[in-house]
Design a protein around this nucleic acid. Structure first.
Lengths: 204, 204
DNA sequence: ATCTATAATGACTGACCGGTCAGTTTCTGG
DNA sequence: CCAGAAACTGACCGGTCAGTCATTATAGAT
């Protein structure tokens, strides 16, 4: 039965998610993932080739959901700005809301020195690029419709993701004032009081 | 001789920096740090209590430099906006330029589940907060002088650091167009084309 | 009820690595 | 030149954990 197997795999991924977001990849043991899923260690190896494969499967699963959320927001009949706002809150209340997810994806920062890291990078990076592209698409649309300034869409996408990340982390640290809106607002309006006449960042 | 000892310690930190930014904390072995510094493993333990202590010493050292750079920029007779711009480029050409540094500090994202992680967090977080405070100070000054809008200084600081991080990572990935200026420009001007009349993000 | 195939188990192994410490080398000052 | 101190060394130990596989349990077919 194919579905039964898929369900089992998913259950393992969920267990892995719980452990990895709590402890990080390197401090996660396969045995704990197994126990958390209610199976023995050997069973994990029936569904995943090795430990890195669990991580890769996990990232695939998470980013798939993140991308699905983007697609969903893009389908709504709203302005690009509203799209970005709603994506922000959709993510913030979904899987991406776990700050551990950010740490999870942070592995991308490490230089790829050995075989395992190369494998990680090879799988994670294309997904991240795909996400950036999707967001850049929203930005581009906003520019064409005149809602956004003619900025570099990719940079704006990178900035958007950073803002989201920043929001998650700071919210995690102090659940005080609503910094989420504050950070979103900064993304939209910038920090400067005036001098908004130009398009490019001065010349030279 | 006290200085001799300090020098040795510094040499070890530099070796640790090289290895850790390349491989990340968990894949770094004490033995490799020792070899990279040209000493035997045992020697490392004359200067650091254990492996976590190396990491903590490293973070202290790096953030000390980052803070010193802020202080230096703050001392210059320039506008808050220029301060932020010059800090950006000072960092980008200094120790912070290594993308591995960002990965290094990313450990802070992991939840503190065990004693070692708690130790990490206890040391790293205050430093990060200190940095955020310093930048928030610049922002506050800019608001008082009317150069910046009346935003929440802390949020702006968090956003600034995120922007820097984003810049580093994307520059590392594609040395194509100058995304640095692009991202800085976004931080200052935001993305919206107009509707700049208000101060707060709507009401609600 | 019995047989077979498929799934699951967990004890075991080998590699790795943090930390130790008895032994060795280097330094210092008399 | 020597003796004692201080610095350094690296073989060794113990614990951990990824991955294996012989054995056992389960499900489905007849």
């Amino acid at each position: 039965m194919k579905t039964k197997s898929k369900e089992k795999r998913l259950a393992l991924l969920k267990a892995a998610f719980a452990v990895v977001t709590e402890k990080g990849y390197f401090e996660t043991t396969v045995d704990e993932v197994a126990r958390r899923a209610g199976v023995a260690k050997g069973t994990v190896y029936l569904y995943f080739k090795d430990k890195p494969a669990i991580y890769i499967g996990l990232v695939d699963w998470l980013l798939e959901q993140a991308l699905a959320t983007i697609a969903e927001v893009v389908a709504r009949p709203i302005s690009p700005r509203r799209r970005l706002e709603e994506l922000f809150s959709s993510w913030a209340s979904g899987v991406m809301s776990n700050p551990g997810v950010m740490a999870l994806l942070s592995i991308e920062n490490v230089n790829q020195i050995n075989a395992v890291m190369k494998r990680f990078k090879k799988h994670v990076l294309p997904h991240i690029v795909e996400m950036e592209d999707a967001i850049a698409g929203i930005v581009k649309q906003g520019i064409e419709q005149g809602e956004f300034r003619p900025v570099e869409p990719r940079s704006a996408a990178v900035m958007y993701l950073s803002a989201f990340r920043a929001e998650l982390l700071s919210a995690n640290r102090s659940p005080s004032a609503r910094p989420g809106e504050s950070i979103q607002e900064l993304f939209f309006y910038g920090i400067l009081a005036e001098g908004r006449g130009r398009t490019k960042h001065g010349d030279r």
